[in-house]
Amino acid sequence: MAEKQESCVKPAGGPISGETPEAVPSPENPKEKEVAAMTARVGREAPDFEATVYQNGAFKNIKLSDYKGKWITLCFYPGDFTFV
């Protein structure tokens, strides 16, 4: 998915819960369980998200689910230019 227009500030993206805005979790709302499933656990579905990335000289928007059907390694690290 190519970016149409680059700008200084863009929304961070973040998790995609699959929830519609009106389906706010509440004790009466059984969908609450789906929101709880957003926390990553082995043996459970990976929390999907969208994000801006830098890859091969370009800024792009991706979703983790774009890679569904493949083996994926998702690595977090404390920061660019750190030591380890």
């Binding site: 043996g43 459970r44 990976a46 994926i72 390694t73 998702l74």
Partner: peptide, 19 residues
């Protein structure tokens, strides 16, 4: 304010297999 060193292996069914 940072993400610490976490690694997740996800299978083709989108299930997390290892962390």
């Amino acid at each position: 304010g940072v993400d610490i060193r976490g690694r997740f292996l996800i299978d083709p069914d989108f299930v997390i297999r290892a962390a």
